[in-house]
Simulated scan of single mutants.
Amino acid sequence: MKKRKLGNTGIEVSEIAFGGVEIGLPYGIGVNSDKDMISEAKAIDLLRLALDSGINFFDTARMYGNSEHIMGKAFQNKRSEVILATKCVHLLDNEGNLPPKNKLRETVEKSIYESLKALQTDYVDIFMLHQATVKILENEEILTVFSSLKDKGLFKAAGVSTYTTEVTEKTIDIGFWNMIQLPFNLMDQRQGELFKKADEKGIGIVVRSVLLKGLLSDRGRNLHPALKDVENHIAKYHELLEGTNYKLPALATKFALSFPEVSSVLVGIDKQEYLEEALRTVDGVYLSKEKLNKARQLAYPEPEFINLPYWDKMKWLT
């Protein structure tokens, strides 16, 4: 497993990052309750197998159910071998407002200390804002409390999880944040426009949603009628598989890793077969310039429609 530098943080991460949401709560197509999830014992075994197989980067969050707790158990005697990234609790209320200054600081501090306890460690490598907005980023108290916690040694690098290019660009322009976790995939390539700018500022890029919650796999068939155009577009990527010995998920992952500014790609892993497939994908051979250009031309023509939270809300993914 090759490792890449995470911007200017001094941290080196495996090209594949183990996405921890699936082991902590019901998530993904066809996963509707706890009974559809992997058991805690099997999740611990899977995390340790991933580490033994060369993955050193593990991503979780306060909001991911039991994910931090499970990772804490898995790595309690292996802390020096892993790069742990976790995210703060959501900071906006139902009306989209931030709490008052003192309450905001208390919320962030409580979140990281709860994460450290669950992860059984005294620091995390990366501490992130979860679902950041421009309003959150412009709040001076956010920078103050993150700076204070970093100075205390509770984390090494400060990160932001973004959804839109507007928020990603704002993160870059602020000049404080060390890494950005953002959605980027064959269908929705808008964030790629900011890769160079982030790289020039020494900011690491971690890509998530590379498989579009599993749609860029065999699951991307027989979709809800509202997603018929999406399903038809996904079928176009199969022409890029001609002459290869891999499948669509591998193509989607190789696509993201073909950009030198990308440090790592988050892959949701809750089965050994998914781990093995991810490991086969990172063989050091990525898309040729010609195939990469072709993939870029096959971006979905209406990327603003690629909105997984909205699709979930509309129950188009169940």
Score class of each variant (00 low, 15 high):
residue 143 L to V: 08
residue 143 L to R: 12
residue 23 I to L: 03
residue 161 S to A: 05
residue 200 E to L: 13
residue 228 K to D: 14
residue 288 S to M: 08
residue 104 L to F: 10
residue 235 A to Q: 00
residue 304 E to T: 14
residue 82 V to F: 02
residue 275 L to K: 07
residue 59 D to N: 15
residue 190 R to T: 13
residue 229 D to Q: 12
residue 176 F to L: 09
residue 80 S to L: 05
residue 213 K to A: 07
residue 286 Y to Q: 04
residue 262 V to Q: 09
residue 309 P to G: 03
residue 140 E to P: 13
residue 210 V to R: 08
residue 115 S to I: 02
residue 18 F to T: 00
residue 196 K to Y: 08
residue 245 N to G: 09
residue 224 H to V: 02
residue 2 K to C: 01
residue 32 N to G: 06
residue 281 T to K: 12
residue 294 K to R: 13
residue 157 A to S: 13
residue 317 L to H: 10
residue 218 D to C: 01
residue 316 W to P: 09
residue 296 R to L: 15
residue 311 W to A: 09
residue 110 K to V: 06
residue 47 L to D: 01
residue 109 E to K: 04
residue 140 E to K: 15
residue 266 L to R: 02
residue 168 T to S: 12
residue 33 S to D: 15
residue 34 D to V: 01
residue 36 D to Y: 11
residue 314 M to K: 15
residue 293 N to E: 15
residue 272 Q to A: 09
residue 176 F to Q: 13
residue 162 T to V: 15
residue 58 F to H: 11
residue 238 H to Q: 15
residue 77 N to M: 09
residue 261 E to N: 14
residue 310 Y to C: 02
residue 312 D to S: 15
residue 9 T to K: 14
residue 98 L to W: 09
residue 279 L to N: 00
residue 225 P to H: 07
residue 276 E to Y: 08
residue 34 D to Y: 11
residue 256 A to T: 13
residue 118 A to P: 02
residue 240 L to D: 15
residue 111 S to Q: 06
residue 69 H to K: 12
residue 227 L to Y: 06
residue 223 L to E: 03
residue 98 L to M: 10
residue 110 K to R: 13
residue 199 D to K: 14
residue 170 K to F: 07
residue 48 R to V: 05
residue 262 V to G: 12
